[in-house]
Write a protein that binds this DNA or RNA. Structure first.
Length: 582
DNA sequence: GCCGTTTTCGGCCCGACTGTTTTCAGTCG
C-alpha cells in the first residue's frame, strides 16, 4: 500500500491522539502527552496492519510503544473499546478537545475556558461575541478578535478534512471492499477523487448486483463502529473520526454514477447540457438518447465518448474550461508521479528532520529516484536548528563523500534559505555559491502588510542565486490562512527571473494551490513538485504535490523535477550563465 | 508515557517573538 496505512492503523492512531488531547486538558505531564502523540504518529505510518503486529505479540516493536501503550492498543483491537479512554471522556467534556485546535488557544487557556463552562466551539464563539473572553485570565481583547476571526466560518473550518489525512483511509477501505465477492468495482468519489486539498467527507462508490450482501459486510470493515442507512447511502461511523459514506449502484450504471458522484457540479452540468443539445438525457442511471435507448452507463469513458468528448481526468473536473478542451481534443497530458525524477526539498537531522542524511538518501534511492536535493534550514528559524555557514560546509563535505559511493545516483546540496523580513537572504552570497539548488521561503514575520510581503518575496526572487520559491503563501490548512501577498506579482517576478515555484506536498500546505499553478505555468513559470520531507516517510507526499499540479493543468514539461539529473543541472547552469551575462 | 542506561531514574527540541502580562502561554519550522 502506497502510504502504508490501513483503516485499522488510522483508527488506533486516532484513539491515541484523543487520549493525548484529553490528558492535555487535564494538565497531565507534557511528556506523557507527547508520548501518546508520538506513538500515534508511528502507528499511522506503519507499513503493516497493526492487528498483525498485535497477533504476533510485536506491538512494542513499534518505536514509542512500550508495555503500557501496547496493552491499551491490544485492548482496543480485541474489544473495540478502551476503558482508559472511556474514563477520560467521562472526566472531560469530549467536545472540548476542539478548543485546542483554535489558534491562540493551548491547553492552559482551554482549561480556563472549561472551568467557566465554555466547552465547545459554539460556546466559545458565543462568549467571544458577547465580549466575555477578554475577562478570562490569559485572554485579552486582541486574542478575542483573533478567536472570532478563526471561528468566523464555523462550518467550514473544523468540517473540512485534509486530503492527505483521509485519502489513505479511503484507499484502505476501498481495498477491503474490493475483496468482497459481490463487489465488482469500488472507487472514492467526490472532491476526494478530484484531489481537492480538503474534502468534506469520504464517499465510496461501489458497483454490485447484490447490495444486501455488501451492506451486510460493512460493519466488519476495520475501524467501523456502526453503520446506518441514510437516504441513498450507508453511513459508516469510523473510529478514525472521519465520516464515510458508501453508495451502492448497479454495475451497468457504474460509469454514469461515477461521473455524477465525482462532480464537480459545474462539470456535470456542462456534460448534461451537451446531452440535452443532442436531445438526450444524462442521469446517474445512464445516458439515454431521444428514443429512450441507453447510449452508455457502465463505463465512464464511454459516457464521455458518446458525448463527443475525450475522457476528462477527475482533477480537471471543475467546470473551468476542461469540457471545451475535451471537445477540441486539447486536454493537457497531465504530469504523473511516474514522471517525477527526483526530490528537490528534503530535510535531515542536520536541521529539523527526523532521519539522517544517509537514511534519507537511501530511501530516495530505494524509491527509484535519480537524485535527491538536501535542503536543510538556514540559521534564522533558530528553532529549526538551522545550519550555520560552518555546518553547511561540513554538510557539503558529507554529501560529496556520499556521492563518491553512490553514482549514478546523485545527492545535490541545497538549502531552504529564509527570506528575511526585508527580502535579503539568510546566507551571504559566497555561501550560497557552494549550493546546487537554493530554495527560499518565508519563515517569520507573517503579519507584514500585503505590499511589504510582496516586495520582500519579489526582492528575494531577484537574487541571482535563487532557484525555487518555497511554500509561497505559508498557509496551513485548517490552522492559518496564508500571509497576505500579491501572488500575481510574485508569479510575474518568478517568470522574469526564471525562478521555479514550489508545489509543496505536505498535506496541510499544498502550497501553492491549484489555481495558482495554472496561472504560473501559463506565464512560463516552472513548478517544483516537492514533499518538504522531514522524514523518509514524508516522501509519500509526492503524490499530493503532483495531484495539486494536475489540478493546475500541469504537464511534465511544466515541472522542474520531471527533468532528469542532466536536465535539472542544465536548467540551473543556463540560469546562472544568463545572470552573469546580464 | 518511552527510552536507554555509567540498568531503574532522568531526560525527553532550542529560543525568539507576540500578546497578555509583571512571570507566562502560545506559536513558528
Amino acid at each position: 500500500m502506497a502510504e502504508g496505512g490501513t483503516a485499522r492503523n488510522h483508527a488506533v492512531a486516532h484513539v491515541l491522539e484523543e487520549i493525548a488531547d484529553l490528558l492535555e486538558l487535564q494538565d497531565e505531564q507534557p511528556f506523557r502527552v507527547r508520548a501518546y502523540r508520538a506513538a500515534a504518529e508511528q502507528v499511522r505510518g506503519l507499513a503493516v496492519d497493526i492487528a498483525e503486529l498485535d497477533a504476533a505479540g510485536q506491538l512494542d516493536a513499534i518505536p514509542g510503544v512500550g508495555k503500557a501503550l501496547a496493552a491499551k492498543i491490544h485492548e482496543y483491537l480485541t474489544t473495540g473499546q478502551l476503558g482508559y479512554l472511556e474514563r477520560l471522556r467521562a472526566q472531560v467534556p469530549a467536545e472540548a478537545v476542539a478548543l485546542l485546535r483554535v489558534p491562540g488557544i493551548g491547553p492552559t487557556r482551554a482549561r480556563q475556558l472549561i472551568k467557566r463552562g465554555i466547552t465547545s466551539l459554539a460556546a466559545l464563539r458565543a462568549a467571544a461575541e458577547r465580549g466575555e473572553l477578554r475577562g478570562i485570565p490569559g485572554f485579552g481583547a486582541a486574542l478575542e478578535q483573533q478567536v472570532l476571526a478563526a471561528l468566523a466560518t464555523p462550518e467550514e473550518r473544523p468540517a473540512r478534512l485534509l486530503l492527505g489525512a483521509v485519502l489513505p483511509l479511503a484507499e484502505a477501505l476501498a481495498a477491503e471492499l474490493a475483496q468482497h465477492r459481490a463487489v465488482r468495482a469500488v472507487s472514492p468519489v467526490g472532491s476526494l477523487r478530484r484531489w481537492r486539498a480538503t474534502v468534506g467527507d469520504v464517499t465510496l462508490l461501489v458497483a454490485t448486483a447484490e447490495p444486501d450482501a455488501v451492506i451486510a459486510a460493512l460493519p466488519n470493515l476495520p475501524g467501523v463502529e456502526r453503520v446506518r442507512a441514510e437516504d441513498a447511502w450507508q453511513v459508516l461511523e469510523h473510529a478514525a473520526g472521519v465520516p464515510v459514506r458508501v453508495v451502492l449502484v448497479e454495475p451497468d450504471a457504474w460509469g454514469t454514477a461515477l461521473l455524477f458522484w465525482t462532480g464537480a457540479r459545474a462539470h456535470v452540468e456542462q456534460l448534461a447540457a451537451r446531452a440535452v443539445a443532442r436531445g438526450w438525457r444524462l442521469t446517474p442511471a445512464g445516458l439515454v438518447d431521444e428514443r429512450g435507448r441507453r447510449r452508455a452507463g457502465a463505463d465512464e469513458a464511454a459516457v464521455y465518448a458518446a458525448l463527443g468528448l475525450d475522457w476528462v481526468p477527475p482533477e480537471l473536473r471543475e467546470g473551468a474550461g476542461e469540457v471545451e478542451a475535451a471537445a477540441a481534443h486539447a486536454l493537457p497530458t497531465l504530469v504523473t508521479v511516474a514522471d517525477i525524477r527526483g526530490e528537490l526539498h528534503a530535510h535531515t537531522d542536520w536541521s529539523d528532520g527526523a532521519d539522517t542524511l544517509e537514511q534519507m538518501v537511501e530511501a530516495a534511492r530505494a524509491r527509484g529516484d535519480a537524485y535527491l536535493v538536501i535542503t536543510d534550514h538556514s540559521p534564522t528559524p533558530a528553532v529549526a536548528g538551522g545550519l550555520s555557514a560552518e555546518r553547511l560546509r561540513e554538510q557539503h563535505r558529507a554529501i560529496a563523500a556520499l556521492n563518491a559511493k553512490l553514482a549514478p545516483f546523485r545527492v545535490l546540496h541545497g538549502a531552504e534559505v529564509s527570506i528575511l523580513p526585508d527580502g535579503r537572504l539568510d546566507y551571504p552570497d559566497d555561501v550560497l555559491a557552494m549550493l546546487d539548488v537554493v530554495i527560499v521561503s518565508v519563515h517569520n514575520q507573517f503579519r507584514q502588510s500585503r505590499e511589504a510581503m510582496t516586495e520582500r518575496i519579489c526582492r528575494a526572487l531577484a537574487h541571482p542565486m535563487v532557484d525555487v520559491l518555497g511554500h509561497a503563501t505559508g498557509r496551513l490548512l485548517g490552522r492559518r490562512d496564508g500571509y497576505a501577498v500579491d501572488l500575481e506579482a510574485v508569479i510575474a517576478t518568478a517568470a522574469a527571473h526564471g525562478v521555479a515555484i514550489e508545489v509543496n506536498g505536505q498535506p496541510d500546505r499544498l502550497d501553492i494551490e491549484d489555481v495558482w499553478v495554472r496561472r504560473a505555468i501559463a506565464q512560463g513559470v516552472l513548478v517544483a513538485c516537492t514533499t518538504d520531507a522531514h522524514s523518509r516517510r514524508n516522501f509519500d507526499y509526492r503524490r499530493y504535490a503532483v495531484g495539486q499540479a494536475r489540478r493546475g493543468w500541469a504537464e511534465a514539461r511544466h515541472v522542474l523535477n520531471a527533468r532528469d539529473l542532466d536536465g535539472l543541472l542544465a536548467w540551473r547552469a543556463a540560469r546562472r550563465a544568463a545572470h552573469q551575462q546580464g
